[in-house]
């Protein structure tokens, strides 16, 4: 099918984008990469009267790496962040997760910030936002505000963003030097939405085979309504990096509530998420 008619707005500056959203946001949508929105329009699951296309807004397509975070602007494509070597060097979990986001043709157009604003529980980057304690930079008619990732997601496809607000950028916080990360997921084909996925951040003390785990956190894809972090520290602290991660299974399975669909039952997903967590922990520390 084809989208219903809409008015297309193409602001060139952030001020114009904010002003346009103030005027039409209540009856419109932001158009970023369109890789989630245009399918919805094509199927006429939504018929917004206005689209505020942010692709030509100057200055939104930048990636900034500082001592504390990696800041990603609203029109940075998944593929640009995935290829960014400086971002990878300081926060490898970004690329580790982006390798699993859709297929190259979708990553070339879809934006990382758009996928976070979209808040699909099957999306990888909302989980990475909570795993890294990211900060959402929101701009709207009332000015700027910042929202912690943990407070941003309200439900499936629902965030605290108002209809007239724009997610200008996301700042993914860097981990300390002793933290190692990994991302693992299981999908029916590479690039498809995951049956279950997990990103882990493991804090390790010492080097080589003597190294000991101080703590670990894990964030999930496709097995919770909104991205959640499970703190695994109580069961992994003090374990060697050659650990078989006793106790992790129980903690993970108790902390998630996967839904069933034609691809997998809820129980299967729960077991899968726990197993992926153990493998990701091993992957991160080895």
């Amino acid at each position: 099918m084809k989208p219903a008619p809409f008015v297309h707005h193409s602001p060139h500056t952030l001020d114009e984008a904010v002003e346009t959203l103030r005027e039409v946001g209540h009856d419109g949508k932001v158009l970023a990469g369109g890789q989630s929105l245009i399918p919805v329009l094509n199927m006429r699951l939504a018929q917004p009267a206005h689209l505020v296309d942010i692709n030509r807004v100057a200055g939104l397509d930048t990636i900034t790496v500082t001592d504390h975070f990696v800041r990603v602007g609203a029109t940075v494509r998944h593929a640009a962040l995935q290829r960014h070597d400086d971002a990878y060097a300081v926060l490898p979990v970004l690329r580790q997760a982006l390798n699993n986001v859709a297929h190259p043709a979708i990553r070339n157009r879809g934006t990382t910030v758009g996928s976070i604003a979209h808040a699909d529980a099957a999306g990888e980057m909302p989980s990475i936002a909570v795993l890294t304690n990211a900060v959402m930079e929101v701009i709207g008619p009332k000015g700027r505000r910042e929202v912690a990732a943990g407070d941003f997601f309200e439900g499936p496809l629902q965030t605290v963003l108002e209809a007239d607000e724009l997610l200008e950028a996301v700042r993914f916080a860097r981990f300390g030097p002793s933290t190692r990360t990994a991302f693992l997921e299981s999908a029916r084909r590479h690039g498809d939405y995951a049956l279950a996925g997990v990103g882990v951040a493991v804090d390790v003390e010492g080097e080589g085979s003597d190294a000991v785990v101080r703590g670990a956190r894990a964030a999930y894809v496709s097995v919770t309504d909104i991205p959640v972090v499970i703190d695994l520290t109580e069961v992994v602290a003090g374990q060697r990096i050659s650990s078989s991660w006793d106790g992790v299974d129980e903690l993970v399975q108790a902390g998630i509530a996967p839904e069933a669909d034609i691809h997998a039952s809820s129980d299967y997903r729960r077991v899968l998420a726990a197993e992926l967590t153990r493998r990701a922990l091993t992957g991160a520390v080895s």
Binding site: M1, H8, S10, L31, G34, Q35, I38, P39, N42, M43, D53, N55, A79, H103, P104, A105, I106, N108, R109
Partner: peptide, 27 residues
Amino acid sequence: CEHGVCGTCTVLVDGDPMRSCLMFAVS
């Protein structure tokens, strides 16, 4: 499919493959 899944509409935009069913001509 017109929702990005089948890939047969893929064209190169500045050399990069993208779904032409998930872009507006104006963009």
